[in-house]
Each structure stands twice: as C-alpha cells, then as structure tokens.
C-alpha cells in the first residue's frame, strides 16, 4: 500500500541505546493548568536500564510531570528532551517508536477484543521490518501481564483490574525504550501489583527506562532504582530509595507522621504511617 511505503521513509527508527544513556529529561519545567502553577521548576531525568518512581501526595504534580514527559502538555517554560532531542522536534510517529505511555484510566469507545487492543500497540511499527514480529510481541506482552486468557473477550467486558493489565500489555507491545506509566498498580490486587513492578524491572533489565507514578511507597522502595518525591510542584528529593525515604522528609511532604524501617529479613525499606 502507498501508506506503508511513505511511513518508513518519513520515520527515523530508534537506535539501540547503551545502559545509562539519558532517555528523557526535563529541565526547569514550569507548567500552569488554568490559574494553578502545578510544576514549579522541575528537573528530572531517566536513564536506560533504570526504574524511576514518582511519588508524592495527591496534587503534587506527578501526573502532570508524566504528561509533560509524554509531550501531552506543552510546558509554560523549560525543556523536555526525549532520546537526545528536544521533544518538540520529533514527529508523532517517531515519538511513538520511542516512548509508550500508560494512562491512569483505560477507556475504549468501541467493543474491540482484547487481542485487537493489544495489537494497537504495534501500530507505530507498521511498515517497518519489525512489524513481522507483531504476533510474538503481542503474545509475549499478554503473557507478561497474565492477560493471555482474555484475548478473545471484548475489552469492555473486563473488570477494572483486568483492563489495567490489558492496557499495560498494549504499552509493552509498543516496544518503546522509554515507558511512562501513570499509576499502573491503582486498580490491581496484591499479586498483580507485584507482577506489574516485576515487569518494570524486566523492562529495565532489557535496557528500557521506566518512569512510574506510584502511591505505594513500599512498592517504590522495593522495585525502583531511584525515587523522586514531588511536593507542591517541585522535587523534594531524588535518589535511591535508601537515601530518599527518610521518616522526617516523608512526614513533612505527606503531612502525616511516617516511620521507615528496614525489613527484618531482606533489609528492604518499609514505610508505615504512624498510628496512635
């Protein structure tokens, strides 16, 4: 088809990246939504082969920051770079080969089957040599999120948690080196929360950069290489969980007394609200 002829010529395919390469970065980012100054000078970066968790109280600007990194929002000032170039200089098709985004809630206007939904994640690759792997990639993504058993069902017939996993499978099928996940664990049970974070680790081990918004600080401590704590539109702390998770800092940011303890057996940090 004519379309597939054109599509390859206009798109620059992503190069394989070395571990540690900065895949996305924001510098002095300011975003206003209406009258509210949601982000006030945020600096953050995510490198290949690492999982970065964005945590913070409601309204701290986590989702806004993720949306800015995803280029959904134009920042009022500051820059966002993706794969070494200013985000605005990529075409929509080129960006789709470089970053995949999991929205907070998965919606679908028409009753597509689960397999069709996951296949949509392959759309950016159509017309490239990698499109030949579509079936294997889709099957692998469904296996990774334990969604294989729903393949033939309409997406609209799934429960909230099942939809969330299918949406994640679609994002994985996109095979972008930069993954931006907005609360992927929100609708999930205990087992699948762990599963999703393990998938994040696997993607990082395979060389991707994963930026994930989390509410569960225990999950962030256990799985993230780096945690960025957002507080009123600024980064209050950014570093490995062992450095960032400090009872005093978290208590101040969340306005709730918080205790941080090492797990007696594994040594992973556990975060608890102090209760009477």
């Amino acid at each position: 088809m004519i379309r597939s002829l054109f599509s390859v010529r206009h798109r620059e395919l992503p190069e394989p990246v070395e571990p540690g390469t900065v895949l996305t970065s924001a510098h002095e980012l300011h975003v206003k939504l209406g009258a509210r100054h949601v982000l006030r000078g945020v600096d953050i970066e995510a490198r290949a082969s690492e999982v970065v968790a964005l945590v913070g109280p409601n309204g701290a600007g986590k989702s806004t920051l993720l949306a800015a990194l995803a280029t959904d929002l134009a920042p009022d000032s500051g820059t966002v770079r993706i794969c070494g170039r200013d985000a605005g200089t990529w075409s929509a098709g080129e960006l789709a080969l470089r970053r995949a985004v999991l929205p907070q809630s998965a919606q679908l206007s028409f009753p597509f089957l689960v397999e069709e939904v996951v296949r949509m994640g392959r759309a950016p690759w159509s017309g490239t040599p990698l499109a030949d792997n579509d079936d294997e990639v889709i099957a692998a993504a469904l296996r990774a999120t334990e969604a294989t058993e729903f393949t033939g069902r309409p997406f609209s017939a799934l429960s909230g948690g099942e939809r969330a996993r299918v949406a994640l499978a679609r994002v994985l099928a996109q095979q972008a080196p930069l993954l931006l996940l907005d609360e992927p664990t929100a609708a999930l049970d205990l087992r699948h929360q762990e599963l999703v974070l393990r998938v994040c680790r696997e993607r990082a081990a395979a060389g991707d950069a994963v930026v994930v918004v989390l509410h569960d600080l225990g999950l962030a401590a256990a799985y993230a290489d780096r945690v960025a704590v957002l507080h009123e539109g600024t980064i209050a702390a950014d570093g490995p969980p062992a450095e960032v998770f400090d009872g005093e800092l978290l208590s101040r940011v969340y306005r709730q007394p918080v205790e941080v303890l090492p797990h007696p057996r594994t040594g992973t940090l556990l975060v608890f609200p102090e209760r009477g």
Partner: peptide, 23 residues
Amino acid sequence: PFYSRKLDLLALGERPARHLGVD
C-alpha cells in the same frame, strides 16, 4: 479508508492515539 487504522487507535482516546503516533 486511509484513516481506518487511525480511527481504531482513536477509540483508545485522544492522548493514547497520539502516543501511538497518530497526528
């Protein structure tokens, strides 16, 4: 017909469609 695949992607919502490369 040239827009059939993009319309499929638009069913996911505007932002997700853009994330998948649709202008």
